[in-house]
Simulated assay, not measured.
Amino acid sequence: MSSEKYIFIASVCVVAIFVSRSTAGPAPKVVNIEDVLNRTVCPFKVDIDINEDRVPRRIKMIRCAEQPNHWCRANAIPDHECCHHKHSNHEMECVEVRDKALVYYKSSDRTDYMDVTVGCTCMIGTVNTVHAGS
C-alpha cells in the first residue's frame, strides 16, 4: 500500500474521532461511590455477596438504606423536597434497581442468572385514588 493511502486512512480516522467527540453531549460527572453514599436523595448501603462456589466469587449489591430520608431530615429539608412523599396526583419513593448477572457455579458446572441489586433511586409514580361514591 502506498504512503498516500496510509495518510488518507489516518486522516479519515482522525476526522471520524473528531466528529464523534464533537456530536456527543458533555461527559457525565464521575464520582466515587464512597463520596455519594449518603448524599443522595435516596441513600444506599453497599453489601458484598460472597459465594466461594460461584464465579465471580464477590458481587457488590447496592441497596436502599433502611431509613432513606435520614439525610434530608438531618439537614432540615422538608419531606416534600425529598423522596418518599405523596402528592395529589403522584408519589415519590426510593426503590431498588435490579438486574441479572450471569454467574458460574463450579460444583455443579453450570451457569445461571442471579438477581443483583445495582442501585437505589427515587421514582415518580401515579397515585391510584379511589373516590367515594364512584
Results as ranks from 00 to 15, higher is better:
55 V>I: 11
97 V>K: 08
45 K>A: 02
8 F>M: 00
59 I>G: 04
33 I>F: 12
6 Y>F: 13
88 S>L: 05
29 K>L: 06
79 D>N: 12
6 Y>Q: 13
97 V>C: 02
131 H>K: 15
5 K>L: 15
43 P>G: 14
42 C>M: 01
67 Q>M: 07
117 T>V: 14
133 G>W: 10
106 K>V: 03
8 F>S: 10
48 I>W: 07
56 P>F: 07
73 R>K: 13
56 P>I: 00
84 H>K: 02
52 E>V: 02
49 D>L: 10
125 G>T: 15
102 L>T: 13
120 C>E: 05
107 S>T: 00
59 I>Q: 07
32 N>K: 15
73 R>V: 14
61 M>W: 12
9 I>M: 13
82 C>F: 09
69 N>K: 01
123 M>C: 12
132 A>F: 13
62 I>S: 05
56 P>S: 03
114 M>Q: 03
24 A>R: 09
3 S>P: 08
97 V>M: 12
53 D>R: 04
75 N>D: 04
92 M>A: 05
126 T>C: 11
97 V>S: 11
109 D>N: 07
134 S>T: 06
96 E>S: 00
41 V>T: 00
124 I>Y: 00
6 Y>W: 11
93 E>T: 07
2 S>A: 13
6 Y>V: 11
18 F>I: 06
20 S>R: 14
80 H>C: 08
14 V>I: 15
18 F>S: 07
106 K>D: 01
122 C>M: 03
123 M>S: 08
15 V>W: 10
123 M>H: 07
22 S>V: 04
16 A>G: 10
110 R>I: 04
119 G>N: 04
7 I>N: 07
8 F>Y: 11
22 S>M: 12
57 R>F: 07
121 T>E: 12
77 I>S: 08
18 F>E: 05
43 P>W: 07
98 R>Q: 12
23 T>H: 02
105 Y>A: 06
34 E>R: 13
85 H>N: 15
132 A>E: 13
76 A>V: 04
15 V>R: 03
116 V>P: 01
117 T>C: 09
128 N>R: 06
129 T>I: 12
37 L>T: 13
110 R>C: 02
86 K>L: 12
50 I>P: 06
4 E>T: 11
80 H>W: 05
29 K>R: 10
38 N>D: 15
83 C>K: 00
48 I>D: 02
34 E>A: 15
113 Y>R: 01
119 G>A: 00
132 A>I: 05
49 D>V: 10
54 R>V: 01
124 I>W: 09
127 V>W: 08
48 I>R: 06
46 V>H: 06
118 V>I: 15
46 V>K: 10
121 T>C: 02
72 C>V: 06
16 A>E: 06
46 V>P: 03
118 V>M: 05
102 L>K: 11
109 D>E: 09
26 P>I: 06
4 E>P: 04
116 V>M: 01
98 R>W: 09
65 A>F: 03
82 C>N: 03
61 M>Y: 12
